[in-house]
Amino acid sequence: MEFTTLVQVIINGVLLGGVYALAAFGLSLIFGVSGVLNLAHGEFLMVGGMAVFLLFDALQNVWYVNPFILVAVVAPLFFLVGLVFEKALIQPLTQRKEHVRLASAVLVTLGAALVIEDVADFASRGSQYEKSVDFFIPSLVIGEIYLETNKLVMFGLVLILIVALFIFLRFTYVGLAVQAVTQNRRGALLVGVNTTRINAIAFGIGTALAAVAGGFEVINSMVAPNIGLPLTLKYLCIVVMGGLGSFLGVALGGVIIGLGESFLGFFYPAWSQTVAYLLLVTVLLIRPKGLFGK
């Protein structure tokens, strides 16, 4: 491999990993706070992407809007969607005993995922199945290295969101409560933290992040009703690999998988989609709790 190509492969891997990490963060936050493995996470990504597409498509003839702006509009809406989803489907589960809760959460969120996919499929009849926005800004070219502008913007936004999340957790009172609930739910309850409200907030943030990732997909590639579950699986991989409850772990896990897919895609593309699972198994063999698991 030539040197510039190597650099390009690495850059691509990191950019890819960053976007993976974004959606995986949401999943990790939800799991860390509420103990729920939200298998509908990928569906929210898909629906978020669809929302961005529908807005873009509707406004296109009247007013050509930069889809990134639409992402910023859609994300807060999905914070609300997350709150509603949590209240409607997840809260009833938290009444149950802990060991039953995880299994129930998996079943309920899986069921929700299938329903959401079906509804999206049904709603797609009469229009196109796959949705993508026509938006292109020429790449930044440095020598022989092409930096796709879309991906740079996305990576930048991911960094901003991660920093924002960090500030939220470290420097706000609610953020402190979120950390407390993540680390010891019983303990948090005992000191008067309303864990129900914190769960809802975690779901809201997580879902908003998923919607942002969905917006990125619709710009960089496409979204279709059937993309949700395979993506959820990949994010689960990243979350488990990084160590449940660790954000640094998720970031690192995302980048590792991004790099893995990037390198394998270059030499053996047929294996590029399984690399996530192979890396997961490898990491867990060395560190059973994940990279930074507790």
Partner: peptide
Amino acid sequence: QKIAPKDTRDFSSIILAMKQ
């Protein structure tokens, strides 16, 4: 001449290899 898995969403590396 290569085959890519059906879930592939990012083709960057494949494209780089093609460029090469």
